[in-house]
Nucleic acid binder design. Structure first.
Lengths: 215, 215, 215, 215
DNA sequence: CATGAATGAGCGTTCATTCAT
DNA sequence: GATGAATGAACGCTCATTCAT
């Protein structure tokens, strides 16, 4: 008791395990974690309520596992691509694109990320936070490398930039997910990168006219 | 039936009404809406369970009211300041500052905004969404005015910029709220504005070297 | 504590006392005792919730008092009429008429008699029963007198006859109260009395053909 | 949502389903519907509170089901007997007997019929009324057939007669149920039928002396 | 006398979890 | 392994009653 039940692993990746995860993501995305009885998840997955407890420790565990595995895939994808894609600007763009495109792969999962992952301060502190921290760290490293290579300004904090990029993309994703509006993620990423790289100030008044925020 | 109970309003702005709201925000920020029994809110507020229903229609109503009034105050503050602050860049900066500083006024409320307001797709669709939409609209108008005045580039979408600014600030707020790290919000806003205005690309390679995202 | 609060009796029959009783009867008739909050009764009566407890010991006490007083009036009316109306058949008819006409005097009270007075076996045993018993006793006495006078058959139980008459009238009242159908109570009483007096069997086959229920 | 839960029906007529129904009837008969917490019914049935909701949609549903099934059995019994019992007088007698004897089969159910079925005008209008209407209809048809056959007088309303019979029997049942007195239902029915058929007026004064109710 | 804000016990119902089959 | 009937703690909410004003 207390241990994650070792997925029965019926020599084949255990299809039920995955069915339950998928069903949980779908149902929770639709109705919210606390309005999704385990029985509803079981029904969607086509298994008995009790079966879920053969594969997961608790209802909570299902949600955590779903989120964990999504992040794992995300980082694996990034990592692999970075083996051949080394330009910092292109790396940022790649991350942004994967992030923003994610809901086209699995809209339910995207919804879930925008909602249930933020369940409560406690949940975030104990669980979600480290996923986001890792995201930020990855971006920061890219930024820092860009700064070292001289392609990014060195007078801005890599942390602030990382948060800005993540926040911007995540907000656009959120907007896309909760709105009817369909738009082109590729083009959007390009715009975001343009803004991030070049800013929105007109360079007409360049030289002395640069905007300098009030102190 | 179905109406908000007329707060008993014992002449004086009803101290209990506010006590309950504050307690609810605190408790919900700590434990999440669904893990916060009405009894816990009542206890924190120093009233009996039933008393909450003299002032609010339901548990849900308490949360909604808290969020509504926070947004109302936010917009009122912006609106008032805009009467004398008309420069688009300064307006953006002001919004960012108020947004980012909000947790110093009421950290619990900031936590709640980062969590409960995004709880469940349904809740967002029915309730939270219009608050965020209004925020974006306000920012978009500022951007558009800046574009007309020629201080902002006209080849970027005002919507995308608005989402980027909101997302960036909100993410920084989120990070501040869920981290021990204390930092200077003023300085952070200045950095964000700098990035938004000028971008992070080094201008050394200006002329031809501008970053152009892959098509 | 435990004593019926002596109605304040502001030297005038205390209008509020009566207002509360009337309001209670109305509200309870509409929604049922257990679905009628004291607050609803108070509102209808135009008094504060707490005021009810100045005149009555409890919510229950209001209902009991209303029923008690209705029965008291009923018996007083009967008793008075009997001073001059002495023919047993006419006495029965008078009782039936008052009973059946009661809902035209106060429909709410009639509804309440048909519903709340039967609340539960416990309520009936402890409270309602003796009212009904008295009704039956009054009728039985009339029957017995009629038997002594030779106008009623002596080979039928006065108790059974009394219950039959009460039951028949009460059921007709119930039907009248819960149905749209409007009908003439006077004519109905006449029919019931005709049936009770003469039966419904045709006398054609009189002599030997009388219906004799199977043993 | 809103549907009666499919009783788990563990092959065998579902003993728990019946246990719950019986317990509910017992408890509600003793204390009244609104004074019978679901927990009390569950306890009496020997199941957990939640189990009741595996078999019934709500507390209300338990009561309705109990009443419905009692009426269904009643009508089925009548219908079957009428296949071979065709004499109108005997049919009336049969109905009366089944009705009056019902409490010997299940006293609690009889109590419940005398109390809860008449609880609150709203409940009656929406639910109970049609059961009683059907009863009256059945009796009316018998009366009408008797009138056609010439065994019942044709100058009395079949509706009034039906209500009288039902009311009389029901009141006798009520009296039997709420009184210690034990009596012979068979004999009582015979008396009621005698009264209904022949009336209680003495025929001595037949010819001119017939009671004619005042106009 | 009258008020009505406040109380808190008690209710109907849900649902995560267990376990006999 | 898989089932799903059963559990019972926990929750949101109501309302009879009290009492300070």
């Amino acid at each position: 008791m207390g241990e994650r039940p070792e997925p029965p692993a019926t020599g084949g990746g255990s299809e039920k395990y995955q069915k339950i995860l998928d069903a949980a993501v779908e149902v929770i995305a639709e109705r919210g974690y606390f309005n999704s009885p385990v029985s509803a998840i079981a029904k969607r997955a086509g298994v008995a309520d009790g079966t879920i407890y053969l594969y997961f420790k608790s209802k909570d565990d299902v949600l955590r596992t779903a989120i964990d595995s999504t992040f794992a895939k995300f980082y694996a994808q990034i990592e692999q691509r970075f083996e051949t894609l080394t330009d910092p600007r292109e790396q940022l763009e790649y991350i942004a694109e994967v992030h923003l495109t994610s809901h086209q792969v699995n809209r339910s999962m995207a919804v879930l990320m925008q909602t249930e992952m933020r369940q409560s301060a406690k949940f975030i502190a104990e669980f979600s936070h480290h996923h986001l921290v890792k995201y930020i760290q990855v971006v920061r490293e890219v930024i820092r490398r860009g700064q070292q290579q001289g392609v990014f300004r060195q007078d801005v904090s890599d942390g602030v930039v990382a948060h800005c990029l993540f926040g911007a993309i995540d907000e656009l994703l959120s907007s896309a997910v909760f709105t009817e509006r369909v738009y082109d993620p590729r083009a959007t990423v390009r715009q975001v990168m343009d803004i991030l790289m070049n800013g929105i100030a007109t360079s007409d008044d360049a030289g002395d006219g640069e905007y300098i925020p009030a102190s």
